[in-house]
Nucleic acid binder design. Structure first.
Lengths: 142, 142
DNA sequence: CTATTTAGTCAGACACTCTGACTATACGTG
DNA sequence: CACGTATAGTCAGAGTGTCTGACTAAATAG
């Protein structure tokens, strides 16, 4: 075996991540770091709680809170009291955040398309199939 | 498409990474961080230069130097003058580093085996085949 | 021999992440 | 209902990883 499978995944995954960050940067979203993006990408349409974001992004709630604060200051999200729980505040995507989401998704799809073109539809399908299956034994959030 | 392919890779890859760190920790290599490990894993048998390690691990040479310094202090590597270039110093794996490498490789193979068992040999082969092919368009170091 | 490149370090700064301690609210049980 | 526990979140402090910029010393090209 030349390289471990996990390292192969790391290589491709980081490439995608960098392309997205670069694309955002080129479109005026130069503040917005990777860590912030990982949080922002997980905010639900109805708004999300810090604790849920933390769990999904696999960081502590302190870290999630810190990142949300940056996002809020930069205008990517806003926070409203949760009507159903006075302890909680809901984090929602703000207009600027939505623009950034769309920008990121754009490059995400571009990269995905490049991969599909390189591998061909059959092997791309096999790749996704294997990865989805692997998730069953590797996703701590599942 | 439920989840982007790159995110699926991230999930599996992080799982492998965490298993390895946890295994190292359980075997007395509790100092030794992920970042240090990423550098250490790339040290060649004959020794490597900081600059090469930096390039392979995709960090600046300052960062690589910083991490090597930690590794050296903890006894995982040592550094000797490069006989062919008086500017350079070769980073070499020390005995303790070799033990850690073996420990890490052990879990790496365990995880690899778990994946193969879950997917079956055919799909595991397809997965690796696709990832190796993808490397052609995603590995900045290739 | 000089100019440029390369290997590496030093200094400073910032981002990310964690642990521990704390407040306030919600919830479950007797 | 009251009390104890669990949950949502914050504050404070620390450590680690990472970068940019400026620098030194040695190698190399012309």
């Amino acid at each position: 075996m030349e390289l471990p499978t996990a390292l192969l995944m790391f290589i491709a995954q980081r490439h995608a991540e960098e392309r997205i960050v670069e694309h955002l940067r080129a479109h005026g979203f130069a503040d917005l770091t990777l860590a912030q993006g990982r949080i922002a990408a997980r905010i639900a349409e109805e708004g999300s709680r810090i604790t849920d974001l933390a769990e999904q992004a696999q960081v502590t709630k302190q870290t999630a809170g810190f990142l949300v604060e940056q996002l809020e200051r930069a205008g990517y999200v806003d926070r409203v009291p949760d009507p159903t729980d006075k302890r909680a505040r809901l984090v929602r995507i703000a207009p600027r955040g939505r623009e950034a989401q769309e920008c990121a998704r754009e490059m995400e799809q571009t990269v995905e398309a490049e991969w599909a073109a390189h591998l061909g539809p059959r092997r791309m399908g096999q790749l996704r199939d294997a990865l989805v299956s692997l998730r069953e034994i590797t996703d701590p959030f599942l």
